[in-house]
Design a protein around this nucleic acid. Structure first.
Length: 517
RNA sequence: GGGCCCGUAGUUCAGUGGUUAGAACGAGCCGCUCAUAACGGUUAUGUCGCAGGUUCGAAUCCUGCCGGGCCUACCA
């Protein structure tokens, strides 16, 4: 085992009730970029994603599809695996809650919580809608003029139902959670979510129902198999199942506690309240950080099945290209904010940032090199102030970008990188290597070397966002495969190295209609 | 009802007490011609939601109002 620092990042596990959409692609993309960055930066990385496959909804959906629950989840889980290929994600593990190892982990955790005295048998009672198959909080229900109590989106009638249930003593954990938040200010991000969670916990916690007897598709409670573990105790545990829990001798246990859970803002409470409470009760270290991403709307509208305006990652990557799509999602919107997916904005980014600024910079530099320098990395002569100024800005990017990644500020990381790209374009104009070609070939070569070297550094840093495209650019600079990590950030281009023929990497996007006219 | 956040150029946003409020995109003009008609320079646009207040000084702090969003537990 190496002595490298570990970095463990996870996506939510996706409920197999749904097919993959932009929300899934977005959360996983953020993890993927994080994981790729940390790998390049020398960390021992583990990146986990997977599917959540239990519960009554799945049981019912399987029945409706005429399949066994297992056959049904096998099928839907595969569609999430397929997304990995479509989006070029790089997970190290894919977990399914129906795996044996997960049963073992959940049951071990359960027993630990029982031993600790944090689980007891009680009665779950609430307003239940048979039609919705869901319980409602009293505040979500109202009594109509006919004296009947109704709830839910369509106002179905609810009845008071009680069933035996095991409870987790969450009510006892409020103060310890608040202390934990206080000592770990980075635990919840962004800041606004942290405020929400703290105010929620300060409002007092109720015990949490953690078992059900009303369905059977799930993990049985140890010693009382009529009870099935309910939702969060099953789902959240996946993050430690992967590391081998309860076997702390498992080689993957070195990754726990997780460095980062990236989730959607809808499940923040479960990750920031329930999860650390479960773990602390079981004497397992809580994760270091939970980052809640926002939601996408499309052209200003909420995404909904009825409007049929979902963004299909497969269609989007097919139309705009995978890397531009990945770039857009993380550049357009500050990570943690809600974002609006606008076709115009995407095309604008694609053309302005990728084709014009970055792609064209590579192309204009590499084609002068190809025509003037015998297709080899040009000779580096004496550097003047303008040269070192540009090079220093490129050198300084690694530290700046690293700091932004520590905050998951992907948009700011990209902004800093693109400032240097703009500097490089200004430098090309100011130095005018095409003019130097006639007057001062030595100086011309130095200018081109400075530019190629700047592109190399920038491209190394863009790799996590756009792995394929940057791979092509690094190929064109003849950067060897073993010189593409940040350990090689200062390994400058060697003059005289043979270069392949340059080729555009980010074509402009032209609307099909405009092209036809 | 209670709590949190936001309202700044056509658009997306930065700026949280101190000189004439900034950036990017978009628009106009000029230049360049290596490059994906790309690049560079330059110009213009704002009663900083409204009204009071604190202060030598407020986009920035306080109060009220208007407009918008989020949270207020067992659907993942």
């Amino acid at each position: 085992m190496s002595g490298r620092s570990t970095f463990y990042v996870t996506t939510p596990i996706y409920y197999v009730n749904d097919v993959p959409h932009i929300g899934h692609a977005y959360a996983t993309l953020a993890c993927d970029v994080m994981a790729r960055f940390k790998r390049l930066d020398g960390y021992d990385v583990h990146f986990l994603t997977g599917t959540d496959e239990h519960g009554q909804k799945v049981e019912k959906a399987a029945e409706a599809a005429g399949l066994s629950p297992q056959a049904f989840t096998d099928k839907v889980s595969q569609s999430f695996r397929d997304l990995i290929g479509v989006m070029n994600f790089s997970p190290d593990g894919f977990i399914r809650t129906t795996e044996k190892r997960h049963y073992a982990a959940c049951q071990a955790l359960w027993e630990k919580l029982v031993t600790a005295g944090d689980i007891y048998l009680g009665k779950y009672a609430g307003w239940y809608s048979v039609r919705d198959e869901a319980f409602y909080a009293e505040s979500e229900t109202e009594v109509g003029t006919d004296g009947k109590r109704r709830a839910g989106p369509v106002g179905n009638e609810v009845e008071w139902v009680e069933e035996p249930s095991y409870f987790f003593k969450l009510s006892a954990w409020g103060d310890r959670l608040l202390e934990f938040y206080d000592k770990n200010p980075r635990f919840i991000a962004p800041e606004s979510r942290r405020n929400e969670i703290i105010s929620f916990v300060k409002g007092g916690l109720q015990d949490l129902s953690v078992s059900r007897t009303s369905f059977s598709w799930g993990i049985p409670v140890p010693g009382d198999p009529k009870h099935i573990m309910y939702v969060w105790l099953d789902a959240l545990t996946n993050y430690i199942t992967e590391c081998g829990y309860p076997d702390e001798g498992n080689p993957l246990w070195r990754f726990w506690p997780a460095d980062l859970h990236i989730i959607g803002k809808d499940i923040i409470r479960f990750h920031c309240v329930f999860w650390p409470a479960f773990l602390m009760a079981a004497d397992v270290a809580p994760p270091k950080r939970v980052f809640a991403s926002g939601w996408w709307t499309t052209e200003g509208q909420k995404i909904s099945k009825s409007l049929g305006n979902a963004i299909d990652p497969v269609a989007a990557t097919a139309e705009f290209g995978l890397d531009p799509f990945r770039y857009f999602l993380l550049r357009e919107v500050p990570f943690g904010n809600d974002g609006d997916f606008q076709r115009r904005a995407l095309i604008g980014r694609l053309n302005a940032d990728l084709a014009n600024a970055y792609g064209n910079l590579c192309q204009r530099v590499l084609s002068i090199v190809a025509k003037n320098c015998d297709g080899k990395v040009p000779a580096k002569g004496t550097l003047v102030d303008a040269d070192t100024a540009l090079l220093d800005r490129a050198k300084g990017l690694l530290g700046a970008v690293r700091a932004e990644f520590d905050e998951q500020a992907f948009h700011r990381a990209l902004t800093s990188i693109w400032e240097v790209i703009a500097d490089a374009n200004r430098y090309v104009d100011a130095q005018a290597p095409w003019a130097l070609a006639k007057t001062d070939p030595v100086r011309r070569d130095t200018v081109l070397w400075v530019l190629a070297e700047t592109i190399r550094r920038v491209t190394l840093l863009v790799q996590p966002f756009m792995p394929d495209s940057t791979g092509k650019i690094l190929d064109q600079l003849a950067v060897p495969a073993d010189a593409r990590t940040f350990a090689a950030f200062d390994r400058e281009l060697t003059p005289g190295t043979e270069l392949p023929k340059p080729q555009g990497v980010f074509p402009r996007f032209v609307e099909p209609a405009a092209a036809a006219s």
